[in-house]
């Protein structure tokens, strides 16, 4: 299935969860936050949150800024 992550289209196996997505993005060890279709998904729910085709996600982290 196709999903959109940070503005880019990504191919992901059907039924994949947010943990699977983070694994594919090599972000499992990083401190990130996820917004799925404009709603925050708490870290504790990443494993149970299954994605579906057309989902739009933002995966963010902290970087230097004022």
């Amino acid at each position: 299935m196709q999903i959109e992550v940070n503005g880019d289209s990504i191919e992901l196996a059907d039924g994949a969860t947010l943990v699977d997505l983070l694994t594919q993005m090599e972000l499992t060890d990083m401190r990130v936050a996820i917004e799925l279709n404009l709603e925050i998904v708490p870290r504790s729910e990443h494993g149970q949150t299954a994605l579906k085709s057309g989902d739009k996600l933002e995966v963010v982290h902290a970087i230097g800024g004022g």
Partner: peptide, 9 residues
Amino acid sequence: VAVRRTNIG
């Protein structure tokens, strides 16, 4: 700190 997409930064 700033909050940005993980592919940026």
